[in-house]
Design a protein around this nucleic acid. Structure first.
Lengths: 111, 111
DNA sequence: GCCCTATACCTGGCATTACCGGGTATAGTC
DNA sequence: GACTATACCCGGTAATGCCAGGTATAGGGC
């Protein structure tokens, strides 16, 4: 693993969970599609990261799931936010803004 | 630990290391003072987080240290960036911008 | 002399989180 | 019948921040 990869990996910690919740709130989604979107956004390195996270969100009561049959391939597991999930997403948004600004300001002061 | 604290704790993962490097680059600093500044910025919860991090930075060759006697209390351990540390800080700045923007955009789409 | 506070550094054990490599099952194509 | 695409999942690993504690020096008040 390169030094740059390590930086990115650690940056993703803590934000990925809420980007997933945000995507689910924006419109119901299933795991495999989410994985593709998040990879394109540079938020995960592979689907192996996403499925354990989704399982955790479910067992914490932040999302609910339902199986939907697909035209091709295996059935899909769709995710929906629970009220607890919505509250957590809002808590994240409250925490994200000041932390983002603190980092931006710190970086500006150094360069 | 409250739910909001958990959010903040995980958000800090990955950014703290580089905020420390940035502060050191902005002007030599010692641990105890850094801890106060970072706590005020909401980037750490206590000094217990900072000292192990500084030790790690040193053993990775990102910073160098020197002891300086103080007027009052124990001597202070001052930190300076090495060329490797400067390069790491630049690597972080390259990785931070796109990730920050990806999160901002994801949050905007959800609300 | 003795306690208390402030300064300043450090450690061990813990929980959380993302990564990697692999595995399973269904449907369509050549 | 082999191959590819879709779609889900698990076990073990490394990293990072937190907490609760510990150590040492200097000065003020009694």
């Amino acid at each position: 693993m390169s030094a740059d990869d390590r930086v990115t990996t650690n940056l993703r910690k803590g934000v990925l969970e809420f980007c997933v919740l945000a995507h689910i709130q924006a419109g119901d989604a299933y795991g495999f599609e989410l994985a593709r979107v998040l990879e394109a956004d540079g938020l995960i390195a592979g689907e192996g990261t996403l499925y354990p996270l989704l399982t955790r969100l479910r067992s914490s009561g932040l999302v609910e799931t339902r199986w939907v049959e697909s035209d091709a391939g295996r059935p899909r597991k769709y995710y929906t936010l629970t009220p607890v999930g919505v509250a957590q997403l809002e808590a994240f948004q409250r925490a994200w803004i000041p932390l983002r600004d603190a980092v931006d300001q710190t970086m500006r002061r150094s360069s």
